[in-house]
């Protein structure tokens, strides 16, 4: 057995309730003592002592009701959030899968946006340029690649976005919902690409409410319930437990 690429060791995450401050400077200053007090006392625990480890090439699914802490877990993995306690160990380049059109600029062409997106996702200019043709070819949006992307349909945007991520050579891929845009042909292409990720030993953490996707993609699933990990195991068993959760 090789070294795990991701280790969560009793990770907890509290969100401070900032609404006392986001009310503005004025409110903060005029209610200083009470603001500070409530600032300390009101915090929300979004994740409770979550522990798991993932081997290279594993595809972990995270499921659970709305607000159970799935996106929080991905945020911790992407290093945009810091754990309140516990330890996270990551080995390898983490690439988040961006939502439709995120990190794109409407006035720039498809080609310009590929560069922009690739850079934001962690590639250098040289790396993007090397992959530019492959990205364009994979996205299959024809001569529209030289047009500003405000002219694109949402399916075309999705193609472009997926194509950039697909060529990142990610080591750890984070996916929060999405996948289901684009026509049947492109969906098939995406699936093939995901399969090739599997062969290339890319580690995937997949959050979804679509149980059929979770079943096909993941080899292991964690069920979260109000920030607590309920069970971890084979997809079928965990999905069954999820569906049996009391309302």
């Amino acid at each position: 057995m090789s070294e795990p690429v991701i280790v969560f060791d009793k990770v907890s995450k509290y969100y401070p309730m900032y609404h006392h401050i986001t009310g503005g400077i004025k409110q903060f200053i005029f209610h200083l003592p009470s603001a500070i007090k409530s600032f300390r006392s009101t915090r929300f625990q979004a994740l409770q002592e979550l522990s798991f480890s993932i081997q290279p090439g594993e595809r972990l699914g995270i499921i659970g009701r709305n607000g159970s802490g799935k996106s929080t877990t991905l945020g911790l993995l992407a290093r945009v959030l810091k754990p309140s306690s516990g330890r996270i160990t990551l080995r390898g380049r983490v690439s988040p899968f961006l939502e439709l059109g995120m990190g794109f600029h409407a006035e720039l062409t498809g080609r310009e946006n590929i560069l922009l997106n690739g850079i934001i996702l962690g590639m250098t200019r040289k790396e993007v340029r090397k992959r530019m043709d492959a990205i364009i070819e994979f996205a299959e949006i024809g001569e529209f690649i030289e047009q500003p992307i405000r002219m694109y349909s949402s399916g075309m945007l999705a193609r472009l976005g997926f194509s950039v991520v697909a060529h990142l050579n990610p080591e750890i891929l984070l996916i929060d919902e999405i996948l289901a845009v684009g026509d049947a042909v492109f969906q098939k292409k995406c699936q093939d690409k995901m399969l090739s990720f599997r062969q290339k030993n890319v580690t995937i953490v997949f959050v979804s409410h679509a149980m059929s996707d979770v079943r096909t993609l993941c080899n292991r699933v964690i069920l979260l319930d109000r920030g607590k990990p309920l069970i971890t195991g084979a997809p079928d068993a965990v999905i069954k437990a999820y569906e049996g959760l009391p309302a």
Binding site: H105, E107, L108, E112, L115, L116, I119, I120, G122, M123, T124, R125
Partner: peptide, 24 residues
């Protein structure tokens, strides 16, 4: 932090702003 990457990031973002600004 990789310096080449950082430089590219600043460059591409600046270029983007300028391109958008001087599109016409």
């Amino acid at each position: 932090m990789n310096l080449e990457y950082y430089k590219d990031l600043v460059l591409v973002l600046t270029q983007k702003e300028i391109k958008v600004r001087y599109k016409n």
